[in-house]
Amino acid sequence: MSREPHTRLARALTALLQDPRPVTGVQRLRGGSKKGVYRLTLDHTDTVIAYLWHSTEDYWHPGAAHSQDPADPFSHASGPHLFTAAHRALTDLGVRVPRLLAHDTTGTHHPGAIALVQDVPGPTLEELLERDPAAAAPVLDRLGAFLRTMHATTHPGFGKVHHLTTGGRPHAPSCEQTVLDRALADLDEAAARDARLHPHHARLTSALHTLAHRITPRREHVLIHGELGPDHVLVDTDGTPVLIDIEGMMFFDAEWEHSFLRLRFGEHHPRLRTRTPDPHRSALYDLAMHLSLVAGPLRLLEGDYPDRAFMLSIAEHHLARALQTTA
């Protein structure tokens, strides 16, 4: 980031927070493929996190995003409206998120939209699990309590929080149909980019339809984060988990959340259990998740995402898992 964007960020912070102290440091943080995340230091002491939503901060160029339709629960999860709706919903439930200090969507203070949030000083839960699993155990238990609160919050519709709270409705008839349609598209896209899938395309297509056919319809959906890995949880000084990257939060099936939690938390997943899962739904969602994590990284790598080796490793791992699946 050049000096001029640094200056714009500093001016935006001063205006939005009405804080006259000089901004003495601007650091772009790792992660965040859909928005820019920056730590701003004021007067060499206090820090604030800035989220920037702008095309120059989004590695998912229009061709790489799965969908732009707000009625699609899996559409591109980026934008200040998604963030503020999710932040409000979690705050109302007592689920810890970084405190929202100010935000602006007019472009007056910075190109695109900007939100200023509390800088939580602790490590990520991923870092804590690697460094001190014993210290991470009570944090996992508190995270599990947050998830049970979220999964006890229900809605008759399904989709992103902002879409539903502004009167929107899904186009698809059910969560399982949404997942099936997306998984079939992911399979097609992944096969177009990796020839190793060609001999398995028909078998995996049949497996997806077979697994979907076994599912009993459901009329109630729960609040889920949607992409809750230990890298999306900060730990504050009191040992409380703090959820970040919340723009994809939606009402959906708990089984979709747990498919991702099992992948990311592994042996620690039992501490995060909530509702009793439907095994048929879980089987479909597990395969769909693997296919998504093949197609998504390969799509992203068609752009200029910097950590290419990491994305390739994700695609390789989930390709192997998908090919092991039988219906």
Results as ranks from 00 to 15, higher is better:
Met1His: 10
Arg8Ser: 14
Leu13Arg: 06
Leu13Phe: 13
Ala15Arg: 14
Leu16Trp: 07
Arg21Ser: 08
Thr24Glu: 09
Gly32Thr: 00
Lys35Glu: 08
Gly36Gln: 05
Gly36Val: 03
Val37Asp: 05
Leu40Tyr: 09
Thr47Pro: 00
Ala50Gly: 05
Leu52Cys: 13
Tyr59His: 12
Ala64Arg: 08
Phe74Asn: 10
Leu82Ser: 01
Phe83Tyr: 12
Thr84Tyr: 00
Ala85Pro: 00
Ala89Met: 07
Thr91Tyr: 00
Leu93Tyr: 04
Leu93His: 06
Arg96Phe: 00
Ala102Ser: 11
Ala102Thr: 05
Gln118Ser: 02
Glu126Arg: 13
Leu128Lys: 02
Leu128Pro: 05
Ala136Lys: 01
Pro138Phe: 08
Thr153Glu: 08
Ala172Trp: 12
Asp181Arg: 15
Ala183Thr: 10
Ala190Leu: 09
Ala191Phe: 04
Ala191Gly: 12
Pro199Lys: 01
His201Ile: 11
Ala202Trp: 02
Arg203Asn: 08
Thr205Glu: 15
His209Lys: 05
Leu211Thr: 05
Pro217Cys: 11
Arg219Glu: 13
Gly226Trp: 02
Glu227Asp: 15
Asp236Pro: 04
Ile244Gly: 01
Asp245Glu: 02
Ile246Gly: 00
Ile246Trp: 00
Phe252Asn: 03
Asp253Tyr: 07
Glu257Phe: 04
Arg262Phe: 03
His269Ile: 00
Pro270Thr: 06
Leu272Asn: 02
Arg273Ala: 14
Asp278Gly: 12
His290Arg: 12
His290Asn: 14
Val294Asp: 10
Ala295Val: 09
Arg299Ala: 10
Arg299Ser: 11
Met311Gln: 15
Leu312Gln: 15
Leu312Pro: 00
Ser313Gly: 14
His317Asp: 12
His317Leu: 12
Thr326Ala: 12
Ala327Gln: 03
